[in-house]
Design a protein around this nucleic acid. Structure first.
Lengths: 223, 223
DNA sequence: ACGATGTAACTATCCAGTTAGATACATCAG
DNA sequence: CTGATGTATCTAACTGGATAGTTACATCGT
């Protein structure tokens, strides 16, 4: 690759920001060298990547920006995660696992599920953005994710058999409908938000929508 | 503009692919020069851009690929549309206008609206992808779009006043819910599709979901 | 002294946007 | 009808800046 570049000595002394007896008056003002902690650094990188990917998507995200946000060196991304794509996968898996854990489907109670999911997505906006970008850029769900959906679908089917949920709609369709409904306000087109005047994200407005959402879900699930 | 370029004679003869008495045996084998038609070229570019942006988003789309898909020269994108961003805007506007025209909300009949929207999105997959990418990358709805939503919202509100739609949910919320429901199957996570076995896009399956969707919408809109 | 952790500088590639034309077609002068 | 001239349409090749990924070291903890 780079056959002609034999060492570059003493370059160090000229730029080392740590050397205390540096020539100038420039005593480095409390640049703590940060205690080394691979786990913490990796976690900071994952967090930074989550924000960056949420904002810009896979293609729009910049590896340099991720390193900067994490206050870590770019190289570490390649050490810990491999490359940009696998970092994205790591972020996606992490987010998917977090939602699955935070929003269960107790006893196939889709109304409770809808409420929990609305609250979670409201509190964690990145989840929705990551999920959507993932759906477009890449596919390949993880085994964890499949298992999560399998459990939820079985819970819905059981509740249908026991008459607690309407049975004239397939379990998957019913679940997909309700899941989608939970995002209807937060994912609504900007134009709709503008036309429906008032701040769409004001706490009272969100509370009002939450009630509307739950009323609608209740209507759907009983038939 | 071009102060130092006085005429440019006979350069032509050296490369003219049309000159029938060209030296070599290389008779250009039916490379039709394509009749010049600015409108058609522009339309081909817009169509190609729509596909490219739908597949890759704004950041992921490649201007060179768009030109190639259109069978046109890259330069023409800059002549006709300005730059990549404005080409994206053109695509978004075009798609938004198309959906607005194709999916009306007659008399605030949300069930009919849901059916029409489901059918349209099914037949035009790019619309959904473009809309989603737009929501993330850029905002700024057009005046046409605002007007479209205003009309639809008023139709819903009117139907609510006349008792044809439930009135305990704000018009905007009800509309957002129904609109979102129409995409629940097509936008469902891959994992859900896999877990609910069978081909999710098979005609019979789609017909089944369509029925489920309409049943659910009917439940929602009456209360 | 050795592996794990960290850093700055570098490179090869890609890609949006530009330059400098070339070709088709219309119109008009002779 | 004929060639000259202007204009809209189209093209290949280039450029400068950005960006993913690498190299060659440095330093810490043990």
């Amino acid at each position: 690759m780079n056959p002609v570049s034999p060492a570059r000595p003493q370059a160090k002394a000229t730029v080392d920001p740590m050397s205390s007896q540096a020539a100038g008056t420039e005593l480095p003002p409390t640049i703590q060298p940060r205690p080394r902690d691979a786990g913490a650094t990796k976690a900071r990188l994952l967090r930074a990547a989550t924000e960056e990917f949420a904002e810009h998507g896979l293609a729009g995200a910049r590896v340099d920006r991720i390193a900067e946000r994490a206050g870590a060196n770019k190289r570490l991304i390649y050490v810990y995660f491999g490359d940009k794509d696998r970092l994205f996968d790591a972020v996606v898996d992490d987010q998917a696992r977090a939602v699955m854990a935070a929003v269960p489907l107790p006893d196939g109670d889709l109304a409770a599920f809808a409420a929990a999911r609305f609250d979670y997505v409201l509190a964690n906006p990145t989840v929705r953005r990551i999920a959507h970008w993932r759906a477009f850029e890449r596919t390949e769900p993880t085994e964890d994710e499949l298992a999560g959906y399998r459990i939820r679908l079985e819970a819905v089917a059981a509740a249908q058999r026991e008459g607690r949920l309407r049975a004239d709609i397939p379990a998957a369709d019913l679940f997909a409908l309700v899941m989608r409904m939970t995002e209807s306000w937060l994912a609504a087109p900007t134009a709709l938000w503008i036309v429906a005047d008032g701040d769409p994200l004001a706490p009272e407005r969100l509370a009002e929508h939450r009630q509307a959402l739950l009323a609608a879900v209740r209507s759907v699930i009983v038939g």
